[in-house]
Amino acid sequence: MSRVLVTGGAGTIGSAVVRRLLGDPAWEVRVCDHRRPPAWMREGCEVHGGDLRDGAVAHAATSGCSHVIHLAAIVGGIANFHKLPFTLTEVNNALTGAVVHAAIDERIERLLYVSSSMVFERASEFPTPESHLLECPAPRSAYGFSKLAGEVYTRAAHDQHGLRYTICRPFNAYGPGELPDRDEPGIAHAVPDLIAKALAGQHPLEIFGSGEQTRTLTHVDDIADGIVTAMAAPAGENEDFNISASQELSVAQIAGLIWQACGHDGSELELAHLPSFEVDVQRRWPSVEKAQRLLGWEARVDLRAGIAETVDWVQARAPVA
């Protein structure tokens, strides 16, 4: 049995990854997060706390593990990227630097770095293959740049120290696990943000920008399965993968799906267009051919079912008066 460390395991994607690992008898799971994990995670996993930017904490968390899935980072919605550019750049780079250094020192068999679709925020090829990274201009957003820097850290550790790695880029994660920020729209990701507005009966429903921007929503359970599959597969060694569904939808279409999932008549949907942000990716549609070919992996959760599940989860935890 192998032991895997999941950094940021108490987060939305992290929790899904831990749940996926606990369902596989091949893995013992250790979680390191500065937040207190939920009871089910504390019961099923070895839990370490502390700030992973501290090298001693990173080494203690990594010691005795064969694999590391590095998720710990400051994330959030589009408003968060613009509100905390220095903080998230500083923190994300420090986290990755310390965790990668510990992985080298502890002779980890495989480091899986969880990057982001935001490394492709200036993509010009669609659907976007992993190889486009070589031609794609660097991200303008601090968040996208911090995730790209993490990929550079990871590959550099391989080039200089022989650390075996896999890089996974989730696209537009949604699903149970993330609550909306009621005080500031855009701090959370778009799906929980729109669910909260629709459940509150907001009419017209507010979205950022024209609504013509496209996204490829991917359920957190699919993302978790893709991450674990890539980490375990021999074909995933020293490779990068887009971990995503394949259906490209406009933000306006996504708003319509959420509106109806919240119990409203689709014909009554009206949209109000809020000013967007300096960096608002206009098209996000990845190629998933590489993951299908090398890993035999593809997303499976039906979008309408996944959104309905997410609506139920948000409504149960953040009821609207």
Rank of each mutant, 00 (worst) to 15 (best):
M1F: 09
S2F: 10
R3N: 05
A10I: 09
G11P: 06
S15Q: 15
G23P: 09
D24P: 05
E28P: 06
C32K: 01
G44D: 12
H48Y: 06
G49S: 12
S63I: 09
I69H: 02
L71A: 08
T87M: 11
T89P: 04
V91N: 08
N92F: 11
S115M: 09
S117G: 13
S117D: 13
H132I: 11
G150I: 14
G150M: 14
Y153N: 15
T154S: 14
A156R: 10
R169E: 10
A173G: 05
A173P: 03
G177Q: 06
L179D: 04
E184F: 06
P185C: 07
H189S: 13
P204N: 06
I207T: 05
T218A: 08
H219A: 11
H219W: 01
V220F: 08
D221K: 01
A232H: 07
A233W: 06
D240V: 07
N242P: 00
I243E: 03
V251Q: 02
A252R: 00
Q260L: 08
A261L: 05
C262K: 01
D265S: 02
G266M: 06
H273S: 11
P275N: 08
F277R: 04
F277D: 09
R300L: 11
G306E: 07
E309T: 07
V314H: 01
Q315L: 06
P319T: 02
V320R: 00
